Computed example of a mutant assay.
Amino acid sequence: MLKKYIWQYSAWPSLQWDEQTLASLITQCRKKQHFLLGAVSVLGFDLRLQAQGIILEKEVVETSAIEGEQLDPEGVRSSVANKLGLATAGSRPADRKTDATVEVLLDAAKHFNTPLSQERLKGWHAALFPDGYSGFHRIVTGDWRQQEMEIVSGPEGRQQVHYKAPPPEAVSEEISSFLHWLNNQTSSPSAMDGLIRAGLAHYRFVAIHPFDDGNGRIARALTDMALAQDENSAIRFYSLSNRIMQDRDAYYGVLERCSNGSGDVTPWLEWFLQSFQLAVISSQKLINRVLVKAGFWQEFAGTELNSRQKKVVNTLLDAGKGNFEGYLAARKYRSLAKTTKATASRDLENLIKKGIIKRLEGGGRSSKYDLTWERFEPGHVMEER
């Protein structure tokens, strides 16, 4: 018996899900979401911008990594800093593809109230592949695919087909139907829940798979757009791609399971809502680091540090309390600051004298150091009650 895919059933593109199964998850997600957005709303403009930059960096790096493409984190940081007007640029400039990925994600969120069109989707796709290649293969860019699309795994000759997308001649009509649904759905109280709508938008786009490559990245961008519409905010303060990357096998597994079914996408929506919740929790931790970093520079605003010291201190702050592997030692300082043993020793002693770091007990033959966190950690951090 031939395998039948979801778009081959007569009910497509109508999808079904068990509202009772999802109800408690939606409630939990809304509680986490409202807490995060409420906490962020009381931050000053500069801190909110810093938080937005950190989240966007993660989203850009991870949405590409999910598809096996590794972007240079320093280039990503430079691109994000340039687009948001941040002072903390990376050590290397961004390449065209990195800049384009940042621009696509920003466009999706910033212009969330602009109806999504075929032309805009094609523009995103063309931007993601500026040279017309995916790896070593030339692809159709800025237009729908012209070939059959199968999702496969395994060695050549023994490949397993996980999913077959609609034929190329059906793509334009499929996308028209999808966009009509997306642009005419609202997240008002009387309509579909906004989180469900975002999850369905992601799923339907991936099921159509309209491009030769980049479908996952564009699906995650339009999911960000749907979430921005739900929150009525152009600024994203959590990264779904970062969460998906941490559970990539489950992500592909649940998509495959639903795409080989007759239209029940409850398992996908369960996974999506669980991932959303975990993404928000992770974001709370990241924003706490922003608050701690701001507290440090406020505490030591009048303290003069050289460029090497600033770099190492920022590395410790970015890692977070207790998260810098193995603590700081003279050898690690030399490596991070790219300096000599004698200079590293002077810098460390100077930081101790200024009360910025402290020598830890039990360091053995090699002294270990850590920041004096107790001096600058804020009196409160984002903790849900």
Results as ranks from 00 to 15, higher is better:
Leu49Ala: 09
Val171Ser: 00
Lys31Tyr: 13
Leu371Trp: 02
Leu227Phe: 14
Gly44Asp: 15
Tyr327Met: 13
Asp193Ala: 10
Arg308Ile: 01
Lys332Cys: 07
Gln274Asn: 14
Asn323Asp: 11
Ala39Tyr: 11
Ala337Leu: 07
Ser10Pro: 02
Val265Thr: 06
Asp249Trp: 00
Asp193Cys: 12
Glu361Val: 08
Ala109Leu: 12
Pro130Val: 09
Ala279Leu: 01
Ala87Gln: 12
Ser91Gln: 13
Asp230Met: 14
Leu22Cys: 02
Glu59Trp: 04
Ser134Met: 08
Ala191Leu: 05
Thr343Asn: 13
Phe129Asp: 04
Arg220Ser: 08
Tyr333Leu: 01
Leu49Asp: 00
Ala250Gly: 14
Leu71Asn: 01
Ile218Arg: 03
His111Pro: 00
Ala221Ser: 14
Gln118Ser: 12
Glu169Met: 06
Ala250Val: 12
Asn242Pro: 00
Gly123Asn: 11
Phe324Ala: 03
Arg359Pro: 07
Ser64His: 10
Leu200Ala: 06
Trp271Phe: 15
Val206Leu: 06
Ala344Cys: 06
Ser153Leu: 05
Glu148Cys: 01
Val254Ile: 13
Ser10Ile: 06
Trp17His: 15
Trp17Ile: 03
Tyr327His: 13
Gln33Trp: 06
Leu86Lys: 06
Tyr203Trp: 09
Val265Ile: 14
Leu278Asn: 13
Leu37Glu: 12
Ala342Phe: 12
Leu121Phe: 05
Phe211Tyr: 14
Lys285Val: 15
Ala165Ile: 00
Asp18Met: 10
Trp7Ala: 01
Lys32Pro: 00
Phe300Arg: 02
Gly362Phe: 14
Asn82Phe: 09
Lys122His: 12
Ile151Pro: 03
Gly261Gln: 11
Lys332Leu: 15
Leu316Trp: 04
